[in-house]
Design a protein around this nucleic acid. Structure first.
Length: 509
RNA sequence: GGCGCCAUGGUGUAACUGGUUAACACGCCGCCCUCUCAAGGCGGAGAGUUCGGGUUCGAUCCCCGAUGGCGCUACCA
């Protein structure tokens, strides 16, 4: 007998940005499907008409594609189970609700919000589980239909069976809920307003998962307590209950559920910061999963696909760690082609007014940008830090350099004056933009011999005169970049070594 | 209040069906390299596995309880 093909889905609701928790859920679904040779589909859960927005749906799909998590079926990818947007499946749900009503497995509930609230308060006071009393269960069929016809508002509830509700969870094992602790769930909302008659999430998710032949439901563990209600829906229809996998929550460093409060956590914001998608994917994979043996940290997509097993996913919550994400991002930035980094980083420079528009810019400029990036790459966590790190290349501020207290200390010494004078003398003889790393090295050796200065005494004054700071990348990397930049037509003029030294010495007055 | 899930260094994970000096990575500290900051190389500290019982010759691992965290307890998803 051939094994049934696995089918999984990622089912976000378009009520906001795609954030790390959901992205990790999508990734695990995708990896599981790829690993098992199954199918991964995307379904949009927009039954909450008040909060769902089309722009969020667009953003969501863009973010998923950016992560490389393409779906096999879903919006934009036709499949046998279309449509994949719940707001377009209302007819399907209605038919199913009618069936349940007809078969007596669901019933109309005419209770008002006030009545239900009073019931809840009573339950809490009595230290009892807060479950619906089932008051409307016993209403006679004819009467129920009549009241509905007369326009009395009603919701539709499913009758929970009186046996324990069980299911299997691939990350938590067997899970069981006593039926007395599970309320008869609302299937369809009451009221005549916008959402009246619209079925609720817990119901439609089940109908869709069954109809779309989902074999493994992989989702956040905030749904764990809802699962018994969904199991009851499967049972009411006589459908096979799928396998579940509830993923633990991602927490902030304060062990609270990760949210906007913890800073930028949307996938879009990671992209804007200049985090590489492969770094984020690798990081998310590691947040709740470890490969067998547990000694490897970096995985290509193929390796991840090969080694990812749902059974190895941790059940305990994980704390999101920026440091490790940055470490992975550094790893991947070093591993990728510099041309790609230049392509990605250009907009940051453009926005800062340092580079012209990317389209139609001369080839020389992008080649130079690549060289600039190579200089700063070792100290880079994310691409958007680049303009800041490279600021001194573009804007050389003599006054600020001199005003800096630590710099002033270095420059105040007698030996610094000698070194700078000797350096200036040599630079003034060179054509603008012509200084090479080799040339610079030779000069420094001469100056060392001439002034007797060495080490910091020798280099720091020069570094300050050239970059405005006494720390930064190696000279043999910085100088060629400065010189090459000085010959380019950019929105901001890059001062050459000679210009820098001349302006610096002149300021000395 | 009720129900459920979870618990290995600061963080993420590892430890074959119970037997390891409890491993790896991030971070941290130090050394080397170096004009400096990073990067890189090398080394180190840091958990006896939340606590208490039990089962066992032997428990991170199995069972029970406690504690703590989180989730659900909506006509949100």
């Amino acid at each position: 007998m051939k094994a049934k093909k696995t089918r999984v889905r990622f089912a976000p609701s378009p009520t906001g940005m795609l954030h790390v928790g959901n992205a990790r859920t999508a990734l695990y679904n995708w990896l599981f499907a790829r690993h098992t040779g199954g199918e991964y589909l995307l379904r949009i859960e927009d039954t909450d008409l008040d909060r769902s927005e089309a722009r969020h749906e667009t953003q969501l799909m863009e973010d998923l594609r950016w992560l490389g998590l393409e779906w096999d079926e879903g919006p934009g990818v036709p499949g046998p189970h279309a449509p994949y947007r719940q707001s377009e499946r209302l007819g399907i749900y209605r038919e199913h609700t009618e069936r349940l009503l007809r078969e007596g497995k669901a019933y109309r509930c005419f209770c008002t919000a006030e009545e239900l609230e009073a019931e809840r308060e009573r339950a809490v006071a009595m230290h009892r589980p807060q479950v619906y009393s089932g008051k409307c269960r016993g209403i006679d069929r004819e009467e129920s239909a009549m009241r509905a016809r007369l326009g009395e508002p009603f919701a539709v509830r499913l009758q929970i069976p009186d046996h324990p509700l069980r299911f299997h969870d691939m990350v938590r094992g067997a899970v069981e809920f006593a039926s007395e602790t599970v309320s008869d769930p609302i299937l369809v909302r009451s009221g005549s307003g916008k959402s009246g008659g619209v079925p609720v999430y817990n119901y439609v998710v089940t109908v869709d998962d069954a109809l779309m032949e989902i074999t493994h439901v992989i989702r956040g563990d905030d749904h764990l307590s809802n699962t018994p209600k969904q199991v009851a829906v499967y049972e009411a229809f006589g459908w096979k209950v799928p396998e579940f996998a509830h993923l633990s929550t991602i927490l902030g460093s304060d062990r609270e559920r990760l949210s906007k409060r913890h800073g930028a956590t949307s996938i879009a914001s990671f992209r804007e910061m200049g985090i590489l998608p492969e770094a984020l994917v690798n990081y998310l994979a590691l947040l709740g999963w470890g490969a067998e043996g547990g000694t490897r940290e970096t995985f290509t997509e193929e390796e991840l696909t090969r080694e990812f097993k749902l059974e190895r996913v941790t059940a305990s919550p994980a704390v999101f760690d920026w440091g490790k994400l940055h470490w992975l991002n550094r790893h991947y930035m070093k591993a990728t082609e510099i041309s790609r980094l230049a392509e990605l980083a250009w907009p940051y420079f453009e926005r800062a007014g340092l580079l012209p528009g990317q389209d139609g810019a001369p080839e020389k400029v992008s080649a130079w940008l690549e060289a600039v990036i190579a200089v700063f790459l070792p100290s880079l966590d994310q691409l958007d830090q680049l303009p800041g790190k490279a600021a001194f290349v573009f804007r050389f501020d003599v006054e600020a350099a001199r005003a800096n207290v630590e710099n002033a200390e270095v420059l105040g010494t007698e030996i610094a004056g000698k070194v700078l004078a000797a350096f200036a003398a040599r630079v003034s003889g060179a054509a603008a933009g012509s200084v090479t790393g080799e040339q610079f090295k030779a000069w420094m050796n001469e100056i060392k011999a001439e002034t007797g200065a060495k080490g910091k005494d020798l280099f720091h004054p020069v570094r300050i005169a050239l970059t405005g700071a006494h720390s930064g990348p190696e000279f043999d990397k910085v100088i060629p970049v400065i010189e090459a930049g000085s010959g380019l037509e950019l929105p901001v003029h890059v001062a050459s070594v000679r210009e820098r030294v001349e302006r610096f010495v002149k300021q000395q007055g």
